[in-house]
Simulated scan of single mutants.
Amino acid sequence: MRITAESVADGIREQLFSIGDIPGVLWTPAEGSGPRPLVLIGHGGGQHKKGWEVVSRAFPYVTSCGFAVAAIDAPGTGDRPEHPEIRRLVAIIQEREAAGEPFGPAWPALNETVAAQLIPDWQTTLDALQKLDSVGDSQPVGYYGLSAAGEMGIRLVAAEPRITAAVLGLIGSDWLIDTAARITVPVEFVLQWDDEGNPRDSVMKLFDALGSTEKTLHANPGSHFRVPSFEIDSSIRFFARHLSAARLKFAGGGSEPRSR
């Protein structure tokens, strides 16, 4: 891992980094040291590691919970080079959308193309982050991702045993059913009732397929991009409950996080 830039503001330390050709960002409390729980945050389609939907979650996780938070650019976004195959598939999807036609096989092909690179990249990033004194390899790891990041998150959480809790949602891909069944960690799952791209029946079917014994469905009225801001507060409580409690267990303390 190579740190390319570092700054401190409002009690948060921001470190831009690269791991080979993977560009990322790590946020940690400006004060204090030692290992701490880590939350990985995925970004939406066409967005990047410092997009609003990432930062709006990352900063409260750092300031309210004292967690480390990391994000990386997906292939073809942010500081990554252009990805010709992703560009080709996105163009097909946009053409079909403009014509009012179904996306067809281009949509699952796009997700498979992104996942083939992004899932190993997340695992490589986690390997590197856990070698840092500010993160360590003894603390629990969470994942947050909605929409395209929910699609990738289901794949990542199913494949990565170090992730012990996840906030997912805004996705209803039928091809993820079997993958979702392999997830057994606690999950908070977000559904927008009027999501034009992810019909509620498909999203609830994917939620039902999750193999987790502890899973909660948060359904709110509104379209895909109208997730209520209070869902951020809910995710803070979710991760504080699961990651902070696990941290105390690892340290030999009690099983409940301190009230916040």
Results as ranks from 00 to 15, higher is better:
119 I>P: 01
118 L>F: 15
117 Q>T: 11
43 H>C: 03
128 A>Y: 12
133 D>Q: 14
127 D>T: 06
123 Q>V: 09
111 N>Q: 08
61 Y>Q: 13
109 A>S: 12
120 P>F: 05
55 V>N: 10
134 S>N: 04
116 A>K: 09
61 Y>P: 03
111 N>F: 05
128 A>W: 14
48 H>D: 01
58 A>T: 05
108 P>D: 13
64 S>Q: 15
64 S>I: 12
71 A>M: 11
117 Q>F: 09
101 E>I: 08
118 L>D: 14
122 W>G: 03
91 A>K: 10
70 A>Y: 01
86 I>L: 00
76 G>T: 01
73 D>M: 07
86 I>N: 07
86 I>P: 00
103 F>H: 13
116 A>G: 14
86 I>S: 08
85 E>Q: 06
65 C>R: 04
119 I>V: 11
95 E>V: 02
129 L>N: 04
76 G>N: 05
100 G>A: 10
107 W>N: 15
58 A>F: 00
44 G>T: 00
83 H>L: 08
127 D>A: 06
50 K>A: 12
120 P>C: 09
91 A>I: 06
55 V>M: 11
112 E>L: 07
109 A>P: 04
80 R>E: 00
103 F>K: 08
112 E>M: 07
81 P>H: 11
77 T>D: 13
57 R>I: 02
103 F>L: 10
98 A>D: 15
87 R>P: 02
73 D>W: 03
76 G>S: 03
95 E>H: 12
49 K>E: 01
44 G>L: 07
114 V>W: 03
133 D>I: 13
61 Y>W: 14
136 G>A: 04
82 E>H: 10
70 A>S: 12
61 Y>V: 00
138 S>W: 08
85 E>A: 06
81 P>G: 10
83 H>A: 08
